[in-house]
């Protein structure tokens, strides 16, 4: 899309702009239309497999307050849980990059925790901490913690050696090197980590709610309860909202990246 912004002023003809818009938006729209049509065909012929899209829409419209309340609970889990996970992951990365002994001491434990499936930990956490919000915060935080840690650590280490040499000849303190070189320099990696972490945060919150369904609100709980009652419109409306939440978080992040990381067009995802 940024391409069209950059090239549009080159030629002023509205026909040209129109072509651009169709070229950019046409194909994805077409894909969605095809999927929707197929969906409707399946739903109309098999009402016990999928709800029709209009039934999902009607369910959302009939009780927006209920959906809104559940959405807010899931959001709260993501903000608190993922927020804490992100901050802890980043801070531990800083500690590890500054003090090698910390990495040596803590990394094996972190690997052990991370290879343990979160889906398996969640019920144990519910047993330990009850059906309140705490186990949900922990599960959501746990899922985002690892990608944040790994990416931040990679970023803090990926320092421009030549710039570091300049800092060293100036006899810069470790704090000065961190503040003026490592911290700003690691931001592209931090954002790469966030882009992995954001969708995972939604997964974490939903999984946590599955385990403790029925006790507390949340879109994940809603999915489990509605599915158990074979209430397909509510099930799919909740799924759609979860999906929307994920898209929203990722878009927000992209916007934030553009504001903060304008100096780096290099996308380090997948490095």
């Amino acid at each position: 899309m940024s391409d069209s912004i950059a090239t549009a002023p080159r030629r002023n003809s509205s026909a040209f702009t129109m072509t651009r818009i169709i070229w950019n938006w046409g194909p994805p729209t077409l894909t969605f239309v095809i999927v929707a049509v197929l969906w409707q065909l399946v739903a109309i012929n098999n009402p016990y497999v999928l709800p029709t899209l209009d039934a999902v829409g009607a369910s959302l419209a009939s009780d927006p307050g209920m959906y809104w309340a559940n959405l807010l609970v899931t959001c709260q889990e993501i903000v608190v849980g993922a927020g804490a996970g992100i901050i802890c992951g980043f801070l531990l990365a800083v500690a590890m990059s500054e003090l090698p002994i910390v990495e040596k001491a803590v990394m094996p434990l972190i690997v052990v925790i991370m290879v343990t499936p979160v889906v398996a930990i969640a019920p144990a956490l519910v047993v330990a901490f009850g059906f309140g919000m705490l186990p949900k915060y922990i599960v959501t935080g746990l899922v985002v913690f690892f990608p944040m840690l790994v990416n931040s650590l990679a970023g803090l280490r990926d320092v421009d050696q030549k710039a570091l040499d300049v800092f060293k000849t100036l006899h810069a303190s470790r704090w000065e090197i961190f503040r003026d070189l490592r911290l700003p320099g690691c931001m592209p990696f931090v954002f790469a980590g966030l882009r992995i972490a954001m969708p995972l945060a939604v997964v974490g919150a939903a999984v946590a709610e599955f385990v403790a369904a029925g006790q507390q609100a949340g879109l994940g709980s809603l999915v489990t309860i509605a599915a158990a009652q074979a209430n397909l419109p509510v099930t799919w409306a909740s799924i759609a909202l979860l999906c929307l939440l994920g898209v929203l978080l990722v878009s927000l992040l992209a916007l934030l990246r553009k504001r903060i990381l304008w100096w780096s067009d290099e996308d380090v995802v997948g490095r």
Binding site: A163, K168, L181
Partner: peptide, 19 residues
Amino acid sequence: AARDKAIGLVPQSPALLPW
């Protein structure tokens, strides 16, 4: 000398901070 900032280094690449 480094402590007294007596050394000015110009590395092979400019190594300017992009931000």
